[in-house]
Design a protein around this nucleic acid. Structure first.
Lengths: 114, 114
DNA sequence: CTTTAATATTCCTTGACACGTATATACGTA
DNA sequence: TACGTATATACGTGTCAAGGAATATTAAAG
């Protein structure tokens, strides 16, 4: 389990991360909100913790987990190389649709979305 | 292989995507630049194609593969929910560093949070 | 000090998938 | 036609990670 991409490939782990974005949560709270068995939650949290996605503080018997930004920023950094590419694509599509708008009604151009 | 996250979990597939961001490439070109066996390249391209990450056009015996933006934008959309969070973190860090920077060398530092 | 609550860990099984090797298909050309 | 090139697919294999069930650990409460 080396890369951050493998970590977020697991749907339950993504769900946990999404849950933690609002505020820190205990294991039991995560368990209840996501309807997952407790050992499953603990095991995924362990993976997330060791990969640096979350950290925990002890509160009596509870562990409160919260998000850490760095690994997700790493994903963001990898995605950055594609943003230039797809914004160029959107521009090309818009130019294309603009050209389609003018000509005769025999073309298949459909309605524009609001 | 349902989610886009599982697709990009594989390092060779990420390498292929990064290669294609500059321009379209044939299977053989990918094979040579990434030093991967040809069947491996073809198999990964199949996965990427079926997931909508790439598309191919036929040029004689060659297939020219190029990037499609939508699936990567989907990843970007998922990441969006965390940007608010980590920019808040960066802001907090910057405020902290600002407080550390401004005072004259004779002043003492604030206590770190726990 | 026994019990209950919260979380972590262990063991086992199962399935997915990445790889290598070999072969198949398709196209162009002598 | 036969042949070389480019790409795709089939098959067998090993690895690894996720899930379930049971148990261990730790802390608080009684």
């Amino acid at each position: 389990m080396e890369s951050v991409f493998e970590i977020i490939a697991e749907p339950n782990r993504r769900a946990i991360l999404s849950l933690l974005v609002s505020s820190e949560q205990s294991v039991g709270e995560i368990e209840r909100q996501l309807h997952m068995p407790q050992p499953t939650v603990s095991k995924h949290l362990r993976v997330l913790r060791e990969a640096g996605f979350v950290e925990a503080t002890v509160d009596a018997q509870r562990r409160l987990y919260r998000l850490k930004p760095e690994p997700l920023q790493e994903v963001d950094a990898w995605l950055a190389q594609f943003r230039r590419f797809w914004s160029a694509h959107v521009d090309a599509l818009e130019r294309y649709l603009d050209r389609m708008d003018q000509p005769s009604p025999t073309k298949k151009r459909k309605k524009k979305k609001e």
